[in-house]
Each structure stands twice: as C-alpha cells, then as structure tokens.
C-alpha cells in the first residue's frame, strides 16, 4: 500500500502519512499473503530504449521476468525485459513543482501504469 495513504477515501485531510511500502522489504510478500508488485520495462527492438509497459505480481524476480514475458510480450522472441520491484521506485509527482505538493513528500508510488508503448512494440 503506497500512494493511498495521502488520498484514499477516509484519509480525510489528504495528509502525508508515510507509505507502509517504505518499511517493507522490496520484494517481500505484500499484505494478505499476496505477491509483491513489479514494474515491467520492455525493449521492443534493438536500438530502442526500454519503456514502461505495465505491472504485474510475482513472488520473486525470476518469476516476475517469466510472467512479464507471458503477459506483455506473448510470443515475441528477442525482446529485452526489465522487472523492478515497484516498492524500489522512488517517484516525484507528475506536477512536482506545484505548490501544493511538498517536494519532501516524494515517496514510493505504486505505478503510473500503461505508459504509451512505442511503435512496433510486440503484439499491440
């Protein structure tokens, strides 16, 4: 649980409670015994940079990589995939210079998923 501490229903004042993600091992089990969240980056072709394509749950990096292949590249060969524990990402806010965001409040956020996938990305 990360982003919601500030703005989840019931959080009320929109305060800046520290995320409990920050106190959790990066790839340790999430609450409810579930698997942690991973962000997936794919290089669709040689010569192109890795781009964020989405996220998934997996118990560890090895399976995260396999799951990423199955979910985000399906049958394509030759692509390069990175998986990163979502909890290991430190983020700024989209409008971080805005006055109502305190720069010191930057913390792990969950995942701005589904960024655009570059042209020629697998199966899109």
């Amino acid at each position: 649980m990360s982003d919601h501490a500030r703005t989840l229903p019931g959080a009320g004042d929109g305060g800046r409670t520290p995320s409990d993600d920050t106190s959790r091992p990066a790839n340790g089990p999430a609450r409810h015994g579930g698997w942690p969240l991973w962000e997936v980056f794919v290089r669709p072709r040689r010569g192109l940079a890795h781009h964020h394509v989405g996220s998934l749950h997996a118990p560890d990096a090895e399976l995260a990589l396999r799951n990423a292949r199955d979910l985000y590249t399906r049958r394509q060969e030759g692509v390069s995939i990175w998986v990163v524990p979502a909890a290991a990402i430190t983020a700024s806010s989209p409008d971080e210079k805005d006055a109502f965001f305190d720069p010191a409040a930057d913390k792990v956020y969950r995942h701005p998923t589904f960024y655009e996938v570059p042209e020629g990305a697998p199966h899109l």
Partner: peptide, 14 residues
C-alpha cells in the same frame, strides 16, 4: 491490466 490500473488508486489486488 485492469487490476493494475485500479492499484494505482491505492488499493491492492488482493
């Protein structure tokens, strides 16, 4: 994909 989109709102898939 959709669970992941919901998770960005601060709720977990579990």
């Amino acid at each position: 994909y959709l669970y992941a989109a919901a998770e960005t709102l601060g709720v977990s898939r579990d």
